[in-house]
Design a protein around this nucleic acid. Structure first.
Lengths: 319, 319
DNA sequence: CACACTTACGATATTCGTAAGGATT
DNA sequence: AATCCTTACGAATATCGTAAGTGTG
């Protein structure tokens, strides 16, 4: 047994209009086609639903019975379809992103603001987490997208290159190298290096670099804000990728790019599950992130020039 | 936008099986036809509802959303259709009959018992009322069928002859005519006639008869049971149609048919609204009543022979 | 290479709209 | 005579099943 929503709509129209020709018009059909539609519904039900006396159309007892439910069924159906369409049109939905702390604090808020402005109905979730938790969240489904580096195990995940994040020297203005335009890694020998914890993707990018491993590190902290404090206090220097530099806009702190030969970078990716497609809102967010790739590269260049570092405050903020 | 229940069923099947070929089999279709059905649903929704990776079928986020409602929608729809079919099959429903008091007490209970045995799910209502209220109830819709005589205004009502109800003399065993096989109306002259009230169809059938109007009536009562008492007390005689005679099975009361030349009858009809069709259960009841026409005629004959009057107790009674 | 979904395509069913028919007021 | 629903029928559309195509493990 089959039954179409058009039959339901035809029934409801006729039950209200009590007039085949008018109801047919409301359904954008000719009257005979409409008549056949009603008959097909009656055949499916196994009873006449309307008494037609050429001059008057009335519901039969079974028609009344059906009428009590038909409108509800139709509204239910249209509510469900409408809900889907709302999600497709991104008037509803939710996107959860897991991002490395540096990105969550620096770059993403602006993206969020832009996305929220365009799709105010979409709920947004932002989890800042270290690399491994980021990947785990995507794998478990508690995040749709991760913005992070690559981990050791990328199985089941789809990665798409986002940008390269170049490391810079961060030191106090009275440091011997503070006035340089660029420094080589070898020049840092003997300096106390302030490092991030082992879970950090920044730390992991650094240890993969042979030249760096020859340097001394004596301090290990968990958060970038702590690095700011330590450097300002003159306890040491640090090497940090450009995406973090917006946090170091302190008058006594200098940021100096590494010389081309000494360049260290970490590669950042958009990461999602390879076996699960994104929701409409998720896909939109993903593509918004991708569309920012070019701008991100420019942003990194600017970061190299002292005084023109762009931070979160250059983007509109959440209300 | 159109959407069929078959699409819903296909979706639900695929969401559960997660396998096109199996789900197609469950829907009694070939796999390509099933595939097209799913695609048509996705086109209607405007999104992919399933991720098909050749080796695994999974719901997309929008598919999950739809899945939460699809089963409910389908069950709702099938419940409504099932309800209709229950009514068509007379597993559910209700019939309200308005009948003259004599019929409501005498003949109908047996019909009700038979109907209830065959269709135990159908609710039955029986209103005993005088002629005019009977017709009014049908007109107003509070009764589906009336079993009654014709009233003065039959507009909007459809009538179908049911039976002729012949009048008999009812008197006490010591009445001069008590031992006769038949009596003529003229022989009743001078007797005190016990009458029913003006609203009664029995009274109305009598007053239309010229021969009767020449007789004296001095007592008017509302209920047949009262007539029994009055006749037994020797206060008078009465003329009553055969359908009422089951109430006069008293050892001192004699029932005597009128002679052919003096025959008075009232015609009884099945009455329903002419502009409104009956429900399935109502139609079944109506036809059960009609099918009893022949038996009713026989019943009237028996009633004429003293000692073989059939009353309600010859039919099965309600549990 | 075997399994599983998609595409291609001819055949069948449905549905549509126009035109004619029948019934009621 | 006018209105309104039904029937008739050829045309357009949709759906189906078979068979070939594609892609993945």
């Amino acid at each position: 047994m089959n039954l179409s929503s058009r039959q339901l709509r035809a029934f409801v129209a006729l039950a209200q209009e009590k007039h085949f020709t008018k109801a047919a018009g409301r359904c954008h059909q000719t009257q005979p086609a409409f008549s056949a539609l009603i008959r097909s519904l009656e055949d499916a039900a196994g009873v006449r639903l309307f008494d037609r006396t050429t001059r008057r159309v009335e519901l039969t007892p079974e028609g009344h019975l059906f009428n009590e439910s038909a409108l509800r069924l139709l509204n239910d159906l249209e509510a469900v379809m409408g809900d889907i369409q709302d999600h497709v049109a991104k008037r509803k939905g939710s996107v959860a992103v897991a991002a490395l702390p540096s990105l969550a604090a620096g770059w993403l808020p602006g993206i969020y603001a832009r996305f929220h402005e365009q799709y105010p109905g979409v709920e947004l979730h932002l989890h800042d987490a270290l690399l491994v938790p980021c990947l785990d969240m995507v794998r478990l489904g508690s995040a749709d997208i991760a913005v992070a580096a690559k981990g050791s195990d990328m199985s089941g995940l789809h990665t798409e290159p986002l940008c390269e994040d170049y490391f810079h020297l961060v030191c106090r203005d009275d440091h011997p190298l503070a006035q340089r335009d660029a420094v080589r890694l070898s020049e840092l020998k003997g300096n106390a290096i302030i490092q991030l914890g082992k879970g950090s993707s920044i730390r992991q990018s650094l240890v993969r670099n042979a030249a760096f491993s020859s340097l001394d590190s004596f301090l290990e902290v968990d958060h970038l804000a702590t690095v700011t404090g330590l450097v300002t206090a003159g306890l040491g220097i640090s090497l940090l990728p450009s995406m973090t530099l917006f946090q170091f806009q302190h008058e006594r702190i200098k940021v100096i790019p590494l010389a081309p030969r000494s360049r260290i970078k970490r590669s950042l990716y958009l990461i999602r599950r390879s076996d699960k497609s994104l929701s409409s809102a998720g896909r939109a967010f993903y593509e918004l992130l991708l569309s920012q790739r070019g701008e991100l590269a420019r942003r990194n260049d600017f970061a190299s020039a002292p005084g023109t570092i762009q931070g979160a405050d250059t983007f509109p903020t959440f209300p």
